[in-house]
Design a protein around this nucleic acid. Structure first.
Lengths: 186, 186
DNA sequence: GATGTTATTGAACTATGAGTTCAATAACGA
DNA sequence: TCGTTATTGAACTCATAGTTCAATAACATC
C-alpha cells in the first residue's frame, strides 16, 4: 500500500488503477499485471501507474488485498449447519468473486515467485479460519487437518480440475460424509 | 506431434528439445515455454526448434504428453486397498513427476487458453479413471462424484494450497472417512 | 477567484525477447 | 564418396516493459 492519500486525484487514480489491475489479473493472470497494461486498461498514462507503484509486486499485492475482504459464514454453533454454510460461502466466493481464479493463480506462481507464496499462505490461512474453528469443535490433529482438506478440497477439485460447480446436494453429501465418517454426532 | 522421424539427427533433437521443454515448463510455467527459451535450454539454435514446432502450442502439447504416462495403482478388488493405493500413486506422481505443478499450470491457464483447457480435461479424465472405476464398484451418481472429489481434493488442497504432503496416516484417514461416511462395508 | 503545489501526461528513449528469413555448414543415409 | 537435409548463426522486424522529463492540468488553500 502506498501512503495515505489526501489529494482527490490520488484517491481516484488509486481506485481506478486497482480496479483495472484486478480485472487484468482475473482475465489474464499474474504475468499480465504490468504497469503499462493496467494503465491502458484503466485509461491512465503508464507513467502515472509507475509513479504510484514503481514495483510491480506492490501493485499485485494491492490488487490481491481486495480478495481478503470476501465475506464468510457466521458460525451459529451447529456443526453441520456451520460446515455447510462455510462451504457455501466458499463456493459463492469462487463464483462471484472469482476466488477460484485467484487461488489457481497463487498456487501456480507460488513455486516460482516468493511474493505469490506469501500471498497464497496468507489467503489460505485467512480463508480457512472459519472452517478450522468449526472443525476444531469436534476434531483435532491429523483428523482435523484431513477433514478441512476433504471439504475444501472437494470444492477445489470440482472447480479447478473438473470445471464444474457442485450443487447444494453435493455439498450436503460432502459434509454428511465427513460427519458420519468421523462419527460426529450433532 | 511431428511426423515419424527417420534421420538420427531428428530423433536426437526431438528428445533433447522435449526434455528441455518439460524442464522449462516445470520450472518457469506455461508462458516460459517458447521456442527461443527451450532452444537455449536444450543447447540448440532457436531456428531448429522453430523448424520442428512452428506453433508454440504444439511444443507445449508434446511436452505435456509425457505426463500421461505416469503409472497408476493396479486395482486388486479390495475397495479400501484400491482407494488407498490410487491415492498413494497420485501423491507419488505429484512428488516425483511434479504432477502438482502440471495440474496447477493447467488449472490456471485453462480459463484463458483453450489448448490448456483441453489438456486439463484430458489429464483429469485419464488421471481419475482408476479412482472412478474403484469408486463405481460401490457408489454411483452424485455420491460417486463427491467421493472422488473428496479423496482427490484432499490431496490437491494439501499440496496446492497448504503446501504440504499428507503422510500415509492422513491418506488412510481420508479413505476410511469416505468408506464410513458412505457406509461402505468391505 | 487567484495562486502555489503537485499529480498527471505524452513523448522519446532503452532494453529485452519473440518470431522470421536465409545462406552456409555439418551430419546424415545410401 | 555423394546427394540430401537438418542444423546453425546472423540479421532482421515487432511488441512490450521500463525510464526520464518537461509541459500541462487539477488540486487545496486562502
Amino acid at each position: 500500500m502506498v501512503d495515505a492519500p489526501v489529494d482527490a486525484r490520488v484517491v481516484r487514480t488509486h481506485n481506478d488503477v486497482l480496479a483495472a489491475a484486478i480485472d487484468v489479473l482475473i482475465e489474464e493472470g499474474w504475468d499480465a499485471v504490468t504497469q503499462p497494461r493496467v494503465a491502458r486498461r484503466a485509461g491512465y498514462a503508464k507513467a502515472t501507474v509507475y509513479s504510484h507503484w514503481p514495483d510491480r509486486l506492490d501493485l499485485l499485492r494491492d490488487a490481491f488485498q481486495r480478495f481478503g475482504e470476501i465475506p464468510h459464514h457466521e458460525p451459529v454453533g451447529d456443526v453441520r449447519a456451520d460446515m455447510l454454510g462455510e462451504l457455501r460461502s466458499y463456493r459463492r466466493a469462487m463464483v462471484e468473486h472469482r476466488l477460484d481464479r485467484v487461488l489457481a493463480i497463487l498456487a501456480e506462481r507460488a513455486t516460482e515467485v516468493e511474493a505469490a507464496a506469501e500471498l497464497r499462505d496468507q489467503f489460505v490461512d485467512d480463508g480457512m479460519a472459519v472452517c478450522r474453528s468449526v472443525v476444531a469443535t469436534v476434531l483435532s490433529g491429523v483428523e482435523a487437518r484431513a477433514a478441512s482438506a476433504m471439504m475444501g478440497g472437494a470444492l477445489l477439485h470440482a472447480v479447478l480440475l473438473e470445471h464444474r460447480i457442485p450443487d447444494d446436494e453435493e455439498l450436503e453429501i460432502v459434509v454428511d460424509t465427513v460427519l458420519r465418517g468421523f462419527d460426529i454426532a450433532r
